[in-house]
């Protein structure tokens, strides 16, 4: 009888066979490299997680502004004018574009606004 369980089980069987084949006959492999595992990568991943956590708390404008500035800084951009210009242009541009399309971005929990953000889903 085919039920909700059947297909996942078939995939599991097929996947296990492939994994076994992979262990038994590991393909020759040369990494495309050279890859440098670096602090920038960790910084960017941490930054994305922070952005995910703070987007609805701080609101779109604040969170995005901070996220972009920090991202540029982590990657070694040091010219303040360039950082400021790109950040402001992108954040404001995206905000007004979405406003024009009547898509509500999170305003931030601290503004007490009910638009966007966590409250909208209730």
């Amino acid at each position: 009888m085919f039920n909700a369980r059947s297909f996942p089980i078939l995939i599991a069987i097929g996947g296990s066979i492939l994994a076994l084949l992979f262990i038994m006959f590991p393909p020759a492999f040369e990494p495309e490299g050279p890859f440098v595992f670096n602090i920038e990568l960790i910084g960017l991943v941490a930054l994305m997680l922070l952005y995910a956590g703070l987007l609805e708390q701080l609101g779109f404008v604040l969170a995005t502004g901070l996220f972009l500035c920090a991202g540029f800084l982590v990657l070694g951009e040091r010219r303040p004018v360039r950082i400021g210009l790109v950040t402001v242009a992108l954040t404001a541009g995206f905000y007004f574009l979405m406003a024009a399309l009547e898509i509500h971005l999170p305003q931030g929990a601290w503004t007490g606004s009910w638009e966007g953000g966590v409250m909208e889903r209730f």
Partner: peptide, 24 residues
């Protein structure tokens, strides 16, 4: 420069996903 490009790609990918579900 990549120092500008990479954060932009990160922003657009994350926003693209968020705007569909509005779920962090």
């Amino acid at each position: 420069p990549r120092s500008i490009l990479i954060p932009l790609i990160m922003f657009f990918s994350m926003m693209g996903v968020y705007l569909v579900s509005f779920n962090t």
